[in-house]
């Protein structure tokens, strides 16, 4: 996979799998020996957020910064001042933005902290996710995220999946969708993910299709309580 800038912002439609991708990328970069910070900027969703995985990330030496009331009973979207520090840290700093333009709006207040710095913003898409399955809608969504966050995306991450029903065919077929989105928004595709616990890379090649994108194996971290182990 292409080498990314030190500041990596992950955005997308809520439910597209942003958080799971962000957690995988953080773990991956940490494994390569870099210092890694993961900032949970999601003040919109109360559940299924990267700070849910703080303990695991912590044990791997990944610094997590979360909203003040993340994982509490209160849904006040208070941003801790510590979030400013994420723009100054050594190593990789990942930002898991909340879904949609709503999540992206939160990034707006950090505009000055990021101007003049190099960053990559990854737009995570899922061709099976209702509301962005249509290429036009996926493009619209990106534009509204970009305008709310006052930042520009640099890559597309094709994270198409259907949860338990994901199979090699789902992955292969999604590549065409990703390409269309890529063309529509004029952004390169960084990778296409596949859930490594469910599908082997060979199975995707064995479908007979042509693999046009970099395949990136991901663990499924974001789970419902009854899916654990």
């Amino acid at each position: 996979m292409k080498r990314l800038k030190k500041i990596i912002i992950i955005c997308g439609h809520y439910g597209s799998g942003k958080t799971n991708f962000a957690v995988n990328l953080a773990v991956d970069l940490r494994k390569q020996g870099y210092p890694v910070t993961l900032t949970d900027m999601d003040i919109v969703n109360p559940y299924f957020r990267s700070s849910d995985h703080s303990e695991m990330l912590d044990s791997k030496g990944i610094k997590v910064i979360a909203p003040v009331y993340a994982n509490t009973n209160l849904d006040a979207p208070a941003i801790p001042a510590e979030m400013y520090s994420a723009f100054d840290r050594s190593g990789y700093s990942l930002f898991d933005m909340g879904g949609d333009d709503a999540g992206a709006t939160v990034m707006g207040q950090f505009f000055r902290n990021i101007t003049g710095k190099e960053y990559d913003m990854l737009y995570v898409i899922n061709g099976k996710r209702a509301m962005i399955e249509n290429v036009h809608d996926a493009a619209e969504m990106l534009y509204s995220i970009e305008s709310a966050s006052r930042l520009k995306a640099t890559y597309i991450v094709n994270n198409t999946h259907l949860k338990d029903y994901t199979d090699a065919k789902t992955i292969l077929e999604s590549m065409e969708y990703a390409e269309k989105v890529s063309e529509a928004v004029n952004l390169p595709i960084l990778c296409t993910t596949y859930p490594v616990s469910m599908i082997k890379e060979q199975e995707i090649s064995a479908t007979g299709g042509i693999i046009t994108q970099h395949l990136y194996p991901v663990e499924v971290f974001v789970k419902t309580p009854w899916e654990v182990n």
Binding site: I79, T105, M107, G108, Q109, F110, A148
Partner: peptide, 12 residues
């Protein structure tokens, strides 16, 4: 509301 207006403190 800097966070939900998407602006920093002074812009807000």
């Amino acid at each position: 509301c800097p966070t939900n207006w998407g602006l920093d403190a002074q812009e807000s």
